[in-house]
Amino acid sequence: MSLLQTIFEETFKISYEEANQDLAMQDVANWDSLTHMDLISAIEDKLAIRLSSDEIADMTSFDAIKRIVNEHQ
């Protein structure tokens, strides 16, 4: 899952330690509807997966993202 952590770090400009915790949208200063688009495009590009619109809307915490990405692998 280190690739996902790197994506969290780069997208939300947070530290490695923060990217390693289970943070939710409201805990991350930079996470809003616009950076969510950056997040989704980074995950799809770097992990070569295609997310459904329901999955995208469910991805509101790091744990939820990890769970959904896991289901694709």
Binding site: S33, L34, I40, S53, D54, I56, A57
Partner: peptide
Amino acid sequence: TPLLNLLDRNER
């Protein structure tokens, strides 16, 4: 309001 809000299930 963004043109598309991927987080909003009811009104994307």
